[in-house]
Design a protein around this nucleic acid. Structure first.
Lengths: 265, 265
DNA sequence: ACATCTATATCGCCC
DNA sequence: GGGCGATGTAGATGT
């Protein structure tokens, strides 16, 4: 059962009791109300009175959401201890503390509209397609996608402090370092590749090629690639996705069917 | 008024009606239920049946939260169009589509435990202390914190494609570029500074110093700074915070008072 | 525990 | 609108 309790317009004493009970049971809590928020830790912030939604998850993660936008205005990731108390004339406080790094989040409610307490049963597996590591594996298994005659030898080869995605030899036995980006390649990606190539060069006595693989490139990245004498190649994510899907169990096609139908029933 | 409607254990037809009404009014919606989720866009993902909480914000942002953790398992940032429909034998679908980049998020509910519809009034200003730009301003106004005799001349000076945080002259009239990080300085930060210095050097005929300012540095960053003949200096955030607070209206001290008291009333 | 890197990063600023 | 850089980035991974 997902929702255990719904409490509308409670006075702050009832709210305190309900929140304490929910926390003790490690249930998920949603508290909607008017509040002030203070944060102090790696940085510090302050937010004046307003209506917001506070979520305390079953692992103690705390999120404070305003009416708009993807990001919570304040939050605390899961490793927290949570205290709640009531001080007359002030309101109901919820304080979430994290140790590493040491951070304090305090929410001071002056008024509460709604409290929901629940337990969520959710054991389903989350499957993500075409992550960067998956692209790397596909290129490794289909090296001609990079260039004819490429012989991949090692994934995630440690170089200096980092690891280059693919190391291998081209048809002339030049050493090749391949850096892969799943999104548009930018100057940072070029610097990363440059760092690998320079680091690697210092250890060997042969020609070393660096290739940046991405679905597209910013002008700044292309300019820098030329300046640093590095190479690049576009990858076709759609093509890769098809290669990826043919190699394993077919995913549900409900979404694609909808998109192809263009209707909503 | 924040909460306009609470609907417990609705059948899917009532749920459809309520959600459609809420969307039409641009209200915030919370839907708690059992659902499948498909996403396709920059990447693609699939999530099997489980109990989750879906938030549709007043700007159309959609968040799907599982019982644990800071991050939503699936989401759609604000610029979306949202459709909802019911197909018998399947369930209630909510589809959020974004155009740039083109992305689809479909949530298929088989069962709904709770729907909340509300309007949040929240005009309060969010104030963040000691962001990077604030550190920059403090250094600019207190140049001796960098080194005695430093004369800052320009903030956010455009160099190439980016902008260096502070440009100025040292006591020997050398040109100085200062890059500031409010977190531990890493190799990326050094590359960023290096890029500014090289770019700037090509335009002038004098000595150019590059200084990385951060509260601490990774070993990799220190190594790279030496190799690239760049400088670094530690900044004391605690000291800066005091300078920052003395220079403007005093922030609420409720949180600090609590921390000093060590009690919860 | 620490350093490094990825992300459907998101968000905001400036050209 | 695209590029670029900051973020209390969070979270995963390797050492």
């Amino acid at each position: 059962m997902a929702v255990a309790k719904v409490l509308e317009n409670p006075d702050l004493e009832s709210a305190l009791r309900t929140i304490k009970e929910g926390l003790a049971r490690n249930h998920l809590l949603i508290v909607i109300g008017e509040c002030y928020i203070d944060y102090e830790g790696r940085s510090a912030s302050k937010l004046g009175l307003g209506e917001r939604m506070v979520i305390v998850k079953q692992d103690g993660a705390v999120l404070v959401h305003r009416p708009k936008g993807y990001s919570p205005v304040n939050w605390q990731p899961s490793t927290t201890t949570i205290e709640v108390w009531l001080r007359s004339g002030e309101g109901l406080s919820l304080m979430a503390v994290r140790n590493r790094p040491r951070e304090y989040l305090r929410i001071l409610f002056t008024r509460i509209f709604l409290i929901i307490e629940g337990v969520f049963h959710d054991a389903a597996e989350f499957v993500m397609y075409l992550s960067e590591s998956e692209i790397r594996d596909i290129i490794f298994d289909n090296p001609d996608l990079l260039e004819p005659g490429f012989k991949p030898l090692e994934k995630e080869k440690r170089i200096g402090q980092g690891a280059v995605d693919i190391f291998g030899l081209d048809s002339n036995n030049n050493h090749v370092l391949v850096e892969i980006k799943r999104v548009m390649g930018d100057r940072d990606a070029v610097f990363q590749l440059y760092n690998y190539v320079e680091n690697y060069k210092s250890g060997v006595n042969s020609n070393v090629r660096g290739i940046l693989l991405a679905p597209s490139f910013t002008p700044g990245a292309l300019e820098l690639l030329a300046k640093l004498k590095l190479e690049f190649k576009e990858i076709d994510l759609k093509k890769l996705r098809m290669l990826s899907q043919s190699g394993r169990k077919k995913p549900d096609s409900t979404l694609l069917e909808y998109m192809n139908d263009g209707r909503k029933g």
